[in-house]
Amino acid sequence: MTTSGDVVAQLRAAGCVFAEDEARLLTAAAAQTGADLADLVAQRVSGTPLEYLLGWTEFRGIRVAVTSGVFVPRQRTAFLVDQAAELARVMPAQPVVVDMCCGSGALGLALATTLAAEGRPIELAAADIEPTAVECARRNLTPIGAHVYEGDLFEPLPRALCGRIDILLANTPYVPSEMISRMPPEARDHEPRIALDGGPDGLDIFRRVVAAARTWLAPGGHLLVESSQAQARPAITVLTTHGFTGRIAESDEHYATVVIGTKPNT
């Protein structure tokens, strides 16, 4: 019989920093699902992300469903949602929001939940190229009335959204290709590479988004993308080349950098 002390000891030996918390969560998951606790612990020790074993992660105070093979939302990305919420608060009623490269749909869900609590509804859609991500995002977003589309960037979105998007959340892959091998095993070995690899400088997908975004954004609409500090200035150059006004927002608390592009009003 596996005891709580055994679980904590195994997790500590595997290098889990928050072994006590993980032991508690795994024990609860086993009890709720009928899974074998020893098997869950063995998978965790082998490097399987905790979120996959639990079937959820907490993001910005919300429990978000996450399944194996789907990008796990990073806590630092809460800063991107914070920036989007600030922009939405000064917009007309019910801004149109798209969560692109949505993964689990965590960003759109967090933004919609935050603004709904303030009496500020949004019209939300999401898209991802990965079928597994789309299925997961639908679990999270369909209950709040959002549609999730499967396809490459803007391609699957309904044409009715063209020129109407007020806020585009595009958490594009931004890890340079040669850096993938240096990522923690949890991400490198378990998350889909397409959700991580941003090309030689990490900005390949970002460039594609920016190139099409001006057509899809409403006048005065905003594009928000997470990046590294080193990528932020090159990203601003990409934005200005395509006629956007660009700025950089940084958070020491979240260790996060967000690049924001704004489409001219005319």
Score class of each variant (00 low, 15 high):
1 M>E: 14
3 T>V: 09
5 G>Q: 11
10 Q>C: 09
14 A>V: 03
16 C>L: 12
16 C>D: 02
17 V>P: 03
18 F>N: 08
19 A>S: 13
21 D>N: 13
22 E>N: 06
23 A>V: 03
24 R>Y: 03
26 L>G: 00
27 T>E: 07
29 A>T: 13
30 A>D: 08
32 Q>D: 14
32 Q>C: 10
36 D>C: 14
37 L>S: 01
39 D>L: 12
39 D>N: 11
39 D>A: 13
48 T>H: 11
50 L>G: 02
55 G>I: 13
56 W>V: 02
62 I>K: 03
62 I>P: 00
65 A>K: 08
66 V>E: 00
68 S>A: 15
71 F>P: 10
71 F>L: 15
72 V>W: 06
73 P>I: 05
74 R>K: 12
75 Q>I: 15
78 A>D: 12
79 F>Y: 12
84 A>K: 04
87 L>P: 00
93 A>N: 12
98 V>G: 02
98 V>K: 00
98 V>I: 14
99 D>I: 10
101 C>T: 07
103 G>V: 09
105 G>A: 05
107 L>V: 05
114 T>Q: 15
114 T>E: 15
118 E>K: 07
118 E>Q: 13
119 G>C: 08
122 I>C: 06
122 I>D: 01
124 L>S: 04
128 D>T: 06
129 I>G: 00
130 E>K: 00
140 N>T: 14
145 G>P: 01
149 Y>R: 07
151 G>W: 05
156 P>D: 12
156 P>I: 08
157 L>F: 08
158 P>A: 11
162 C>M: 09
162 C>F: 06
163 G>V: 09
164 R>D: 08
165 I>G: 02
165 I>D: 01
166 D>W: 01
168 L>D: 05
169 L>K: 00
174 Y>H: 03
178 E>R: 07
179 M>D: 13
180 I>Q: 05
182 R>W: 11
183 M>S: 07
183 M>A: 15
183 M>F: 13
188 R>N: 10
192 P>T: 04
194 I>W: 01
198 G>K: 09
198 G>N: 10
200 P>S: 11
206 F>C: 07
209 V>S: 05
211 A>T: 14
215 T>V: 13
217 L>E: 09
219 P>G: 09
230 A>P: 01
232 A>D: 07
233 R>K: 07
237 T>A: 12
237 T>F: 10
238 V>D: 01
238 V>F: 09
239 L>H: 00
245 T>F: 11
248 I>D: 07
248 I>T: 14
256 A>W: 05
257 T>R: 02
261 G>R: 02
